[in-house]
Amino acid sequence: MKRFAPLMALLVLVLSACGREDLSALNPQGPVAQEQRDLMLISILIMSIVVVSVFAISIYVLIKFRRRKGDNSIPKQVEGSHKLEVIWTVIPIILLVVLAVPTLKSVFSLAKDYTEDPEALQVIVTAHQYWWEFEYPELGIKTAQELVIPTGKTISIQAKTADVIHSFWIPSLAGKTDTNPDGNVNKMYFSAPKAGVYQGKCAELCGPSHGLMDFKVKAVEPSSFERWQIAMLDTVQLPSDSEIASAFESQCLTCHAVGDYGGGAFPNLTGIGSRESVAGILINVEEGEIEYKHEDTVYNNLYKWIKDPEAVKPGNHMTGAYQLTDEEVAGIAEYLSNLTLDFE
């Protein structure tokens, strides 16, 4: 591989111009995605040899051997050439061997099992029709839509689904793995050396809102991560306004949980006010920084979502599961937007 180094470096330079740091598989931000990107580069290099030679021969042949006006000669009828045929059988085989060696190495290295590794952070990922549940079994924490991880640490993922097949993908950190039903758990690992927010996607068709089933991976310094753990386990106050509190308890906590309250079947809302997004797809920004249709303040996003979830994510299971007046929606959005965790 050494002799390819300068070419590889050039390709890296070209490709790093491609795509967002938090989204592009060509702009890897962790060792796993890095390894996968390197394999892409090797295969692109080898394959460009093939493409260039075919294109060159094509162009030469089409120009050189085009039929001139009035030319009615019969070309020599060649049956074939053993020499040439051996050449274009053997060369591709050599190229494929060159590609197969790093492929095999990587297949086995990426299949490494970290689920018993005490150094790794264990996370159980459960996909649901159109949201992601993240459970930290060692920490006793369950959250949703936003996977908070410490930088530098290996994250050991066990992925499964609660309904249909989804696929867990963080392009800039690691390739995807499917989430299968019924105890068929898939394992993978990744890590993020740099703090930051990375975009996660569902990559297997799972229903109308498949394309909207985004999540975020938030990598924070280990010290912040510790503060986050503590904050997540802290007690949570219910809304101070008693009317809002009773609406929240009777309409929301039947499915959702905050702190020790409520049920666990649907996304845990603890700390939702400091998440990057509402419902994974409505991005929270400060007022005045709104640039795109899917961005708004956390309060507005919460209001929009609770008011009409169907308009945000068609086919989701929240639509029609509750009845709230406009005042209650506003009150609950207000309460949730202030349900923040101070850990960064």
Binding site: A33, Q36, M40, S43, T103, S106, S167, G175, K176, A203
Partner: peptide
């Protein structure tokens, strides 16, 4: 066909 790279390409 390069399986580990396919983890990135797959379903995109």
């Amino acid at each position: 066909a390069v399986a580990p790279a396919d983890y990135q390409y797959h379903d995109t």
